[in-house]
Nucleic acid binder design. Structure first.
Lengths: 181, 181
DNA sequence: AATTTATGTCAGCCATGTTGACATATTTTG
DNA sequence: CAAAATATGTCAACATGGCTGACATAAATT
């Protein structure tokens, strides 16, 4: 019942084995739709908590990355989120006004307004991450440790080849930085 | 260089082996962020094409599911997309007006306005799917066939346990229906 | 005949993205 | 040092795509 069964789709191979990525290859309908539904549910988890605070997903994204990359520059956040500074400004201002994020002048470069979470901000970021972690951990347990690593590799491989190294570096450096505390 | 290296994060196991999904378990920061970046790039592919046509991602989602589930009811589409009929109405009307989608009265139930893609609509849906398929196929090739199946299982396992069977059924039935043509 | 269902529509609001112009402080460069 | 570049913020206006609420119509069901 809870068994994941994609066997039927797998059982019947395509009539013509498509060359990898060729223009004529069959669309990956299943993966396209799995990504859609998986992401829909994945981002849906924190919504209730956010709504009670008058926040949306935009606030979540900002808080998440500030929590993970404390002391990051505004410019870095803009690049990660790929939004304009005006869009960021709105949600960031709210997070600052309500005491979830603070901005400190850069020491070496005093033009910078480096971003930090407050304790309140960290607590919320953690709460939201835990909701998503519950879902992820359940999924990883279902598929087992080998498939878990495969899933991570697949997700990384979906990222733009250009930006991938940077993204993996960002994740890794955030992990290291957090461990130091 | 193009090598996917998450080894560093894997090499150091957490100090306390967390019980699966327990409240105290460490957040799955890496998977959370991989999902974010992967999805960001995944949905970014079709944007350029859509923009030239005056469409957005909302149109893409509608066109995608109508193409995959021809003759579907409006109510089914609303449930899949989890939006209101008013939101759907706006984008659907544009797709119909511009000849990408047509609505036919249901035969058994004449209240229904069943949704179909036109040839033009099918062509666009296919074009957009091919863009995403290129990315997906590249990723699947990178990780290999076993990891590919693992990735599909993981994505399915991320979906709400309630809705999962329905989603997998939807995907499977669409596959079958398309093969019949 | 009354009710329910499937769908559509009007009106307005909200969140979050966009562009463009401009301001300020600070650093870097010629 | 003066000029240019950089990091950031802000104002204004607009677009997309969500939302609620109210109401309408036709067809099916009870």
């Amino acid at each position: 019942m809870a068994d994941i069964n994609l066997a039927a789709a797998k059982a019947r191979p395509p009539r013509l084995e498509p060359e990898a990525g060729a223009a004529g290859s069959e669309p990956q309908w299943d993966v396209i739709e799995l990504l859609f539904f998986a992401y829909r549910d994945f981002v849906g988890d924190p919504d209730d908590v956010l709504e009670k605070l008058g926040f949306g997903r935009a606030h979540h994204r900002v808080l998440h990355f500030v929590n993970r990359n404390r002391g990051m520059k505004v410019a870095d956040l803009l690049e990660i989120l790929r939004i304009t500074k005006q869009s960021l400004g709105r949600v960031l201002k709210q997070l600052v006004d309500e005491g979830y994020v603070i901005q400190k002048e850069g020491e070496s470069d005093r033009r910078q307004r480096l971003l930090y979470v407050t304790e309140k901000g960290e607590a919320l970021a953690l709460k939201l991450a835990q909701l998503q972690t519950t879902r992820i951990t359940r999924a990883l347990n279902e598929v087992g440790p080998e498939a878990s690593e495969a899933a991570r590799k697949f997700l990384a491989a979906i990222i733009d080849t250009d930006g991938r190294a940077g993204v993996l570096d960002l994740i890794e450096r955030a992990n290291v930085a957090r461990r130091r505390d």
